[in-house]
Each structure stands twice: as structure tokens, then as C-alpha cells.
Design a protein around this nucleic acid. Structure first.
Lengths: 232, 232
DNA sequence: GCAAAAGTGTTTAACATACACCCATGG
DNA sequence: CCATGGGTGTATGTTAAACACTTTTGC
């Protein structure tokens, strides 16, 4: 149904020469100390074998936001994660298929949800580190770059990092998130003073044991909705 | 030509039930100590007599950015001002005319360009203070509110204010811009220390005379492209 | 007992804030 | 000469940045 709709729209759009609206979703996660993006491998000319960010046409009965949620669910089986509109890419020739304007979104996926995800068998879906991306179809390299910039910026003035970590985490894990995404190291003592002083996190009252080192205190986020906080 | 295209598209869009792409441009200026928005008065049902922000359909041969520039030029006769993409509004029923997704932009117009503008005779075009807006058609009240928020935020971390002032200006005029847009007063001495210390402005070497008070030094912006600067 | 990561304070410099008076001009 | 807006400095508190050692555990 989705494929026939796509083909139908392509025909209509070519005939009437007008723009159709698509949505592309950049899904980001942090895994093994690397910031990664979910990509799918394309089957259609002229991009056979190329990778792209998941996307699809916006249907007549859904809002653009709803389309982004649907793509997230269909292409990655992920629900309830952080999703926000990123930017709208509207150059005339960005898609050889026809005039497609793409409203791009970015989603943040916690690494524990991600583990669930990779147990499913999508042979044409893969996480790539943003620093080792394959060549992407369309203008998707620009879209991914814009998403990474937005994430880096928001890390500094919001509590958005809550959407990348599991419910409880150690302060070292939290700091690692910042270091991975920003690509620089931070001072441990200053970082801890800051996140505790700003009440970004609170102790969960448990410890992470089982490692050959001193057990780490576990923390929770004080808020799990987006708030403005000057962290950096 | 533009009107017939619009009617044609309306027909096509209704027939094939799919979304067309429009762009709306929120033009902002500061005049007489008030932040104002340019609105046009509509002629078509169901919004006869209602005010709206200038907008129009994106043509097949132009990018969405180009459409925004065209709307700015057509509806307001303004060229070369600051223009950036704001947000894409994509709810299903936001336009009774059909499924229209709007890529909103915001433009900043210096008050001297604006004086030129208001000498022209547009009986259906008017500047309204954002605090005294008439009821707006569609979801344009949301769009304007989003634009104002974006402007307030960018004022704090960029030099964007350059796009609202003439080439030379006094520090009091500059401070007035900040106070008007942010809706709060600032300390004169601290403000001056800040903008000079950050090298946001440099002296123009002239003075503004002709007022019943001490002449004020005139300044210029050190840069007239958008830069990140922590001002507030 | 040793390797590995967790945890903890102090000093210094930079910046933000609060605050009040004199100056140059036009009328 | 007076009304108007322009221009200037200092003291205080707050925040950012730099920096090294002790603790607790598993093996």
C-alpha cells in the first residue's frame, strides 16, 4: 500500500510538475563511545546499493509530524523516543525522482532501546558512526550534518541528553555522552559539580557493581521533558 | 500568472488529495520602540477581511528558499534583508483551502528600509505591533509567535541585531533594540562594556547632532554576517 | 596487592551585576 | 539656564577553569 501510493504520487507529481512532501528522519544514538546514525540501503535506481536516512512521503491524512513518527516506527520499530523537526530541505534538484521537498527530523535513541533494535533482522538497515559514513543518497549527508550540529548545540543549553541514556546511569556514563557528542574531553570534577549543582540529575540510591573497580553511584534525570539549562 | 497557478494547484491538490507546499514570511521590524510584523489583508473566503502574513505557493522551478525571497520582494518590495527558515507547519487541517504545508521564514527589516516601504501605497498591507495583532488567518498567530521567540533567542547568542539597524547608529539606539525585542530594560554601562568588549561594534568616527542634548557617537557593526557571540 | 574506575576541594581568574554623577548641546 | 539624552568607573559576588590524590572493588 505504501509502495503503490509512492508510485502513484510519483506519476502525479511528474504529470503536474509539482512538489511532493517527504519526511526524512535522522536517528542518532551513542554506542561504544561513538555517535551513530541509522541508515537503510536503497534498492531503486539511481541509488541502488547506496545508503540513505529513513524517509517517506507524507500521506494526505497525516500531519508532517505524524509522518515522521510513522517513519520512525516503520523503518526502525522504535517508539516513544525524542523527535524534533530539524530543517526543511527544498532545493529543486535534490531528488532525481522529481520535485521532493523534505521536512527532516532528528530522533535520539537510547543505547538500551538500540540493543533491542539490533536483535531484529534488517539486512538492509545499519548503524554507521557519523565519522565513518558511507556516501549517502540525495542531500542526506547535509541532513545528517545538520542533525549533528543541532544535537551538539542543544546539548549545551538543554537537558536533551536524558533521551540518550537509560533510566539510571553513572556520572561517568553521562560525562561520556557529552564527550562523545562534542568530541572533546571534560574535567571530571567540574562536570560533576555542574550537573549536580544544576539539579540535572539526582542519586537513584543504588550502585553499579560487578566491575573490577570501585562501584559507581547510579543517578536519574530530575526531569524527562526538554528544559533549558545552561550546562556548558 | 501567479493567481492562475494558485487556482490550478488548488484543483489538482483537491483532485489528488495531496499536499502542496507554500511558504509564509514573517517580516519583523522595530519602529517607535515597538516590534512590528507586516500583515496583508485577505480577499478570499473564508478569510475575507482577515489579516495574514505574506505567503504563497512554492513554484515547481524554484527552491523553497527562493520562494521565500520572491514573496518578500513581491509582497513587500524588500530586497537584501536578513531571511532565515523558521519552521515547517504541517498539520492536516491548517488551511481550509486544502492540504497545504507551509515552510515559514522570518525576515528582519531595518527601520530605514521600512520608511521607504511605507511611502508606497498598499492599502491592504500594514505593520502591526506584535502585542496588538489582529486575529490572524490560518495558524499565522502561531507562526508569528514562533518567529518572535526565535528572534529573542538569537539576539542573545548572535550578532543578528545588525540586520535591524541602519549602517550607523548610536549605542542608545542599539540598546533600545535589545530592550524592545526582549521586553526588558538593560543597564546602560554594562551594555556598553559588553558590546564594545565583544567587538560587536566599532566607532564610526562621527556624531549625531541636532538634538537638544549632548551629541552621540555613531557606531558601525564590526561584522554584517551572522556570527555567534554571547551577548546576554 | 594491583589494576581500574570512582569519587572528592581548593585556588585563581574572568565575568556579571549593581549603582550615580557629570557632560555637551539646543532652545 | 535648564531640559535632554550621552557618557563614564568601581566594588562585590558569582561562576568557570585548572589541577592530583584517595577509595573501593574484582581478580
Amino acid at each position: 500500500m505504501c509502495i503503490s501510493y509512492t508510485k502513484y504520487m510519483a506519476k502525479v507529481a511528474r504529470k503536474y510538475k509539482f512538489a511532493v512532501i517527504a519526511s526524512d528522519v535522522v536517528m542518532l544514538t551513542v554506542r561504544d563511545g561513538k555517535l551513530e546514525v541509522l541508515c537503510i540501503q536503497m534498492q531503486k535506481a539511481p541509488f541502488i546499493g547506496k545508503w540513505a536516512v529513513p524517509g517517506g512521503l507524507v500521506q494526505p491524512t497525516e500531519s508532517v509530524d505524524e509522518a515522521a513518527h510513522r517513519i520512525l516506527a516503520e523503518k526502525a520499530g522504535i517508539h516513544g523516543v525524542y523527535l524534533e523537526q530539524l530543517y526543511t530541505f527544498g532545493k529543486v534538484r535534490r531528488d532525481p525522482f522529481g520535485r521532493v521537498v523534505s521536512v527532516a527530523y532528528f530522533a535520539l535513541v537510547p543505547s538500551d532501546a538500540l540493543r533491542l533494535k539490533t536483535t531484529k533482522e534488517y539486512k538492509d538497515v545499519q548503524w554507521f558512526p557519523v565519522k565513518k559514513l558511507p556516501g549517502l543518497a540525495y542531500d542526506h549527508a547535509d541532513i545528517v550534518a545538520t542533525a549533528v550540529q543541532r544535537l551538539q548545540a542543544k546539548l549545551g543549553y538543554t537537558n536533551i541528553v536524558y533521551s540518550l541514556l537509560p533510566k539510571t546511569f553513572t556520572l561517568s556514563e553521562l560525562q561520556g555522552m557529552y564527550e562523545t557528542i562534542l568530541g572533546k574531553t571534560l574535567d571530571k570534577r567540574n562536570f560533576r559539580k555542574k550537573v549536580i549543582g544544576l539539579k540535572l540529575v539526582k542519586p537513584a540510591g543504588e550502585q553499579r557493581k560487578g566491575q573490577a573497580s570501585r562501584p559507581a553511584e547510579l543517578y536519574r534525570f530530575a526531569a524527562t521533558e526538554l528544559k533549558k539549562v545552561e550546562i556548558l
